[in-house]
Nucleic acid binder design. Structure first.
Lengths: 338, 338
DNA sequence: TTGTATGCGTTATCAA
DNA sequence: TTGATAACGCATACAA
């Protein structure tokens, strides 16, 4: 009778202990690879566990331990859905983070539900759903992250790296990226520059500022700004068309992503403008198709693999009580046809 | 002294109960929105909880409850990293799934560590790390999923929909996709067809078979197969170049993704071949840049949003004890320049 | 090196 | 409608 019940249920550590004729803690130790258990017992225990198809209950484990070994990764899907993809870039970043967490055997909780305001972030952490956060794409939430950091919630953010942010950020050197694009335009003798992107996002704004900094080299250079709210392919295309229809004729364009660059090239061609003849163009991210597009797109490269690894590393350091500093990743210009 | 300790610790349900002067179960009921608690008490409890910054411990919750309210989403990062991105498509799918799970307030565990063989899938489920699986991209693992389904592990797979698979699959009608491409080639009078992709993946193989089915319409049509192992942009480009260098001159190409199509167009142009003059081309997925590429790419569209919703729905039905059937999503040809 | 006893923070069961 | 009590399955402190 009691037997029947046992049959139907999943084995617990108690069952394994009984069958292996040891105590429960010994089973626990054996399973977690503790050195404090004799080889014979360990072998016997693992054997029994295998036979019984036993797997440690992770929820009981998490309840008992100080760490949950789970990291919440927050992705700004809103800015990246419905063809509103800035680039596959953000997903390569996600892949990098996923891999780095995997190596450490840490669970990745993706964009947990209901994570809107500051309080939601605090609550999830309090409820021990995750030990900390990795945020992919800072966007417009700088103030919130600042506040979170003040509350000592472990967090690593991919985005703009600013001196006084108060939280740990990892990002490409956006300002330098802008400078590099600007210097190239200078070399090519371009005078009427255009920046395409949403400067509400800090990382994008820094690129714009870098570009303007480069423009200071000569007084007869103008830098125009084409705001793209949703940063989607279609919207970029439309805005670019309108811009040209209004009579504007830039001779240099710096776009927030390679995908956006494709939209620009397309819209400009529609109006008889061809790169590099009529204008120069620099994109961002160096996604694979950029090299083979017609014309091949000049762009700025960031190292996504290193980015993922670094984000995880920084977060782990915080979980260990440290206060790691923000880092800026190397950034370089890849010159191609445009 | 005991007081001091309390101060430093996070409040538990016991603390809230004491402060609100009710019993622990009542707090539990109030917090989970049970109707069996009087409005005044509920109000008082919520008030105290807010004041104390209390958040229910999710691990204790999961330990106690039958469901963990967590779904593991398995992404084949290996096939999609290092510029090896078939398309941003798979990530749009992920976004769709994430959204659908969010709506139901279910956690998304992304590509959990150590999930390689059959046993790993079984163990994670046994250890109550997830109630079930959503697999994005069946790839070469059909046999394993079949086995998992036999063990009654809830699961919904994005991939090839086959009659006898034994597990619940959701996918576009790959065979029809192939047929549609073939019919178009027929209309255009093309005779030397080429299929580009890795037919080891079932969903890709079905497209190939659909294409061959269409080719049966006329005896003088040949269908060649260019195997791409990693399905990366660079490899596709290289393989296509080699193919042409060997003297092959197809007049119709059906590629496994739009990104691959871009690689094809690029490689062919390198060899003096231009679409649609010299050959016709059909891609897959209808990603945004496809419409604006030069030339604009004719492609096959699948509905990613519906796909995500459907995958989640099917999985939830299984968690509720049902045995939902596989579904095939509508698939249509988008005719553009190529 | 092993075992005993205890507690982690909930929810379910049952009785009131 | 509420409360007392008992699981849930594990890991740790401590003693042996």
């Amino acid at each position: 009778m009691a037997d029947k019940r046992r049959k139907a249920m999943r084995p617990t550590m108690d069952d394994i202990a009984r069958l292996a004729e040891v105590s429960k803690p010994t089973v626990s130790r054996a399973l977690s690879g503790s050195p404090l258990v004799s080889p014979e017992k360990r072998e016997r225990i693992l054997q029994v566990a295998r036979e019984q198809g036993y797997a440690v209950n992770r929820n009981a484990q998490k309840l008992r331990q100080a760490r949950t070994n789970t990291v919440a990764v927050v992705l700004d899907f809103e800015s990246h859905r419905h063809g509103a993809i800035g680039d596959p870039f953000i997903y390569e970043l996600l892949a990098g983070v996923s891999e780095a967490l995997s190596v450490r055997d840490v669970d990745l909780l993706l964009s947990p539900p209901g994570l809107n305001g500051l309080d939601d972030f605090i609550d999830l952490h309090r409820s021990r759903g995750a030990d900390g956060y990795i945020v992919l794409g800072q966007g417009k939430r700088e103030a919130m992250f600042r506040e979170l950091a003040r509350k000592d919630i472990p967090m690593a953010v991919w985005g703009a790296v600013m001196a006084d942010s108060g939280y740990c950020a990892v990002g490409s050197d956006n300002f330098l990226g802008g400078m590099l694009a600007g210097r190239r335009f200078l070399e090519l003798g371009r005078r009427k520059w255009l920046f395409v992107g949403n400067t509400v996002h800090d990382e994008i704004r820094l690129r714009y500022e870098g570009l303007r900094e480069a423009a200071n080299a000569s007084p007869d250079i103008s830098v125009d700004l084409l705001q793209i709210d949703m940063m989607a392919f279609a919207e970029t295309y439309k805005k670019a068309e309108e811009y040209l229809k209004s009579g504007n004729r830039p001779d240099a364009v710096f776009a927030f992503s390679d995908t956006a660059s494709m939209a620009i090239i397309s819209a400009f061609r529609q109006n008889g403008l061809v790169a590099p003849r009529d204008y120069s163009l620099v994109g961002y991210n160096n996604i694979p198709p950029a090299a083979h597009f017609a014309p091949a797109i000049t762009t700025i490269e960031q190292d996504t693999n290193m980015a993922g690894t670094l984000l995880v590393e920084k977060l782990m350091q915080q979980l260990d009580g440290a206060r790691p500093k923000s880092v800026t990743l190397p950034t370089k210009l890849i010159v191609r046809e445009t």
